[in-house]
């Protein structure tokens, strides 16, 4: 076992990383860690959780109990704090709150996170998502500018639109891998996106289908049934 994400996580905390996404991580005197929503700092009325598995339920719904299919959407629910007794439990809890995000940061630091251009991701789609190969550059850039904006997803997009075309509709800070320095001087583990997610691929399909429906008054042939 050459790689050890748990040890890496411990070393990041020791080096002053205290947050990831909307979560603040506070080392405890007993060697454990407390997690809570960064906007809940100072609150005394939080519901206490002591199992990393509880992070699954906390991550699935926002404050209005609406399902969150995208865990990096800036809609993490408030009102809880979770005590992780060990770095392993911290890792497990973060894998629910922000699936794979600590792992991708480690891969990035190891130089093992090559970004995949959106065109390449769309190019390998089959079944109902094969339609995304017909996405136009302009409509694709516009979609990414909305769907991947910080108001929708807090990841930093590492991938270009194509090998020769960068993303043009997102601000530079949404494309940077650099850890953010917080007001208290601590660092934030960045949420990295090395390849477009299925939610964006599905949105690309919708854009293509909508345009093609508008262009063709005839009912289009049924899509392949695979999804």
């Amino acid at each position: 076992m050459k790689r050890n994400l748990t040890q890496a996580l411990e070393s990041w905390i020791a080096a002053g990383f205290r947050s990831i996404g909307q979560i603040t991580i506070t080392p405890q005197s007993n060697g454990g860690y407390e997690l809570r929503h960064a906007e809940d700092l100072g609150r005394e009325d939080l519901h206490l959780h002591t199992s990393a598995d509880d992070a699954r339920g906390l991550s699935f719904f926002d404050d209005a109990n609406v399902y969150r299919p995208l865990k990096t959407a800036p809609t993490l629910r408030h009102g809880w704090r979770l005590l992780a007794g060990t770095a392993g439990e911290l890792r497990a809890a973060l894998d629910h709150f922000y699936p794979s995000m600590t792992a991708l940061w480690l891969s990035y630091l190891e130089g093992k996170l090559p970004p995949v251009p959106l065109r390449e991701t769309l190019g390998r789609q089959t079944g109902m998502y094969a339609a995304t190969k017909r996405l136009l550059d302009d409509e694709g850039q516009e979609l990414v500018g909305k769907a991947c904006a910080a108001s929708a997803c807090t990841k930093r997009m590492l991938w270009p639109f194509s090998e020769n075309q960068p993303l043009t509709q997102l601000p530079a800070e949404d494309l940077s891998c650099e850890p953010r320095v917080m007001a208290d001087g601590s660092h934030q583990i960045p949420l990295l996106c090395h390849e477009a997610c299925n939610i964006l691929v599905a949105a690309c399909r919708e854009v293509v289908k909508k345009r093609e429906r508008a262009q063709s008054p005839q009912p289009s042939a049924a899509s392949p049934a695979s999804h």
């Binding site: 076992m1 050459k2 790689r3 050890n4 994400l5 748990t6 299919p69 995208l70 865990k71 990096t72 894998d95 699936p99 794979s100 792992a103 991708l104 480690l106 891969s107 093992k112 996170l113 995949v116 090395h194 390849e195 997610c197 299925n198």
Partner: peptide, 25 residues
Amino acid sequence: FGEVHCAFWKEEPSLRQVLHMVDRE
């Protein structure tokens, strides 16, 4: 197993992310 992870087509972690989460060979 020493490690157990989930991966999904329509949720996270995705199939493109999950192998990064694995320590073991």
